[in-house]
Amino acid sequence: MAAEEEKTMTFKSLGLCDQLVEAVDELQWKSPTPIQLQVIPHALQGKDLIAIAQTGSGKTGAFALPILQALLDSSQAFFALVLSPTRELAIQIAEQFDALASGFGAKSVVLVGQVDMVQQSHILAKRPHIIVATPGRLLDHLSRTKGFSLGTLKYLVLDEADRLLDDELTRHG
């Protein structure tokens, strides 16, 4: 896409619904970033994607917006899972989902270590739409939280997949 075309693209022209266009306006996102321009149209078509971009480039918006748009069309519990290598990043991702979904009530949960598992289990029992988790804590809940499974999952995002895989390879050598 030519630089001139990129400047004229809007979130609306990428195919996002009015509710999400309003949400990005409220967050004062002026125009889509390059990663959002490349990812959002394909993600809205339901395509599987691998995208690489630097920190601060708008990656979270690139995957969160299409997930939220699909959720608006088909609201169901345990709709999307985002795996993150760190608890800090998981919390930031969930905050972004919450900010974008504030106008229509999509519920998310953060599953990370150093937070009480029982408290997290109670939130899971309320059947949130979006789960943002670190791999270890997700595995804890899958093995210990009664009634929790990922059988209805429609979207899976591996944020910073290279770090997730490095961490797993290091742990299991």
Rank of each mutant, 00 (worst) to 15 (best):
F63E: 03
L68M: 03
L89H: 06
G56K: 10
L65G: 03
Q92L: 08
A125V: 05
I40S: 06
L68R: 01
P85I: 06
V115D: 07
V109E: 02
Q69I: 02
G113I: 10
T86L: 07
P66C: 03
P41F: 10
L111Y: 09
L72F: 03
A90E: 08
L83M: 14
S102P: 00
L44A: 02
L72E: 11
R127N: 14
V82W: 01
F79V: 06
K107F: 00
L81G: 05
K47Q: 15
G56H: 11
K107T: 14
L72K: 10
A94D: 13
I40C: 06
D98H: 05
V110Y: 00
I52H: 11
G56R: 10
A99R: 14
V39Q: 09
K126Y: 00
Q69T: 02
A101M: 00
S75Y: 01
P85K: 04
T55F: 07
A125D: 14
P41I: 08
A80C: 07
P128D: 05
V82C: 10
T60N: 05
A99P: 00
M117R: 13
S102T: 04
G46Q: 09
L111V: 11
V82D: 04
L68V: 04
V115T: 15
L65I: 04
Q45W: 00
L124D: 10
A64N: 04
Q119I: 13
D116G: 11
I52Q: 15
Q119F: 12
F63H: 02
